[in-house]
Simulated scan of single mutants.
Amino acid sequence: MAEENRPAFAADRRERILELVRAHGAVSLRDLAAQVHASEVTVRRDVRALETEGLVDRRRGGVALPGRMGHEQSYSGKSNQCAAEKAAIAATAARLVRPGDAVTLGPGSTAEALAHELLQHTELTVVTNALRVAEVLAAAPGVRVVMTGGTLHGPMRALVGAEAQATLAALRVNRAFLSGNGVSAERGLSTPDPAVAAVDRALSSCAEETVVLADHTKVGADTMVPTVAPEEIAHLVTDNGADPEVLMTLEDTGALVHVAVAVGERGH
């Protein structure tokens, strides 16, 4: 029966590889080989053929959609990664929000987790360009949600563009809560997408201080477009899987580092 699940021809196998890459944004060769029931050597040959056609880009140990830097994935793919860590980060970050605050909240699965933590807050105003964040907070009677305008960026479920930036330029809030694909002492917070980066900068610029939410896979990583300079990060909220030496370099830039412990790891 297992034989029936295997693509019979190279064309079928390559179509399946393309479907997986489109669904996740970036996939390792090992995972692709397991999914299509073929050897990594065979998958590598398929990837080369797809790259020749301009359908994918090869990366070290994997494959991504054309033009993607690093390992950017679909929103659903990101949501499933480090879920316990993101929940712990969100709970810790929520303690930085006070009654009467106005905050900006950017897109991303960690920001969405923070939105869930803010449901019981009162006298809170949240300005966001993130559709998922707004959807979560729509159920919160004590939270007023202000959405930017803009053009929908499908992969991030976020509004981007000049209209979004103009909305934020006229505002002043207490704190900005932002995530991204990497944060380092050298380049600060960064993301692979220029359109998302431009609005992230605007979300940060209208705030008195910026809080970066980054699980351990993002700490020490750099991606294409910097959004918040290292010295502009007032707080970094991460989990206890982050490299302590990298956290020390971020503290040296002036960031106050908060380390959250994921449920299931306490007491170990």
Rank of each mutant, 00 (worst) to 15 (best):
D243A: 04
L189E: 10
D239W: 05
E186Y: 01
A185G: 14
E251V: 06
A229N: 03
P226H: 05
G188P: 04
S184H: 07
T217N: 06
P192C: 02
T249G: 07
I233P: 05
V263Q: 15
V246L: 15
A185K: 03
V199R: 04
D200T: 07
L256S: 14
S205T: 13
S179C: 01
A185H: 11
V199I: 12
T217I: 02
V183S: 00
L168A: 04
S179T: 13
G264D: 11
S205G: 14
T167S: 14
G241P: 05
T223V: 12
H216A: 13
A166Y: 13
V211I: 15
H258P: 02
V219D: 04
A198R: 11
V219R: 08
A242E: 03
Q165W: 01
G241Q: 08
A214G: 09
T238C: 11
L236P: 00
Q165E: 14
A229G: 02
K218S: 04
T253R: 11
S179Y: 02
T191I: 09
V225M: 00
T249I: 12
R175T: 05
A229I: 08
V212F: 08
A198F: 05
V237K: 02
G254S: 09
A242F: 09
A169C: 01
P230C: 03
G264A: 06
S190T: 11
D252R: 15
M248N: 14
N240F: 09
E208D: 15
G182Q: 01
A185R: 03
G180L: 10
A234N: 13
V212L: 07
V173T: 08
V263T: 15
L256P: 00
T238N: 12
S179G: 15
V237S: 00
C206D: 00
S190P: 03
V211N: 02
L203N: 06
H258E: 06
A170V: 06
E231M: 07
R175K: 12
V246Y: 07
A221Y: 01
E231T: 14
A234P: 06
A255E: 10
L168S: 06
E231D: 13
V212Q: 02
V199L: 04
E245H: 15
A214K: 08
G241E: 08
V261T: 15
F177V: 08
D215T: 09
L256C: 11
D222V: 14
D243H: 11
V246E: 14
R187P: 00
N240M: 02
L247I: 12
V246K: 12
G180H: 08
R175L: 05
M224S: 14
A198T: 11
T191F: 04
L213E: 12
A262M: 01
V246D: 07
L189S: 03
I233E: 01
F177W: 04
L247C: 07
R201T: 13
T227Q: 02
D193Q: 10
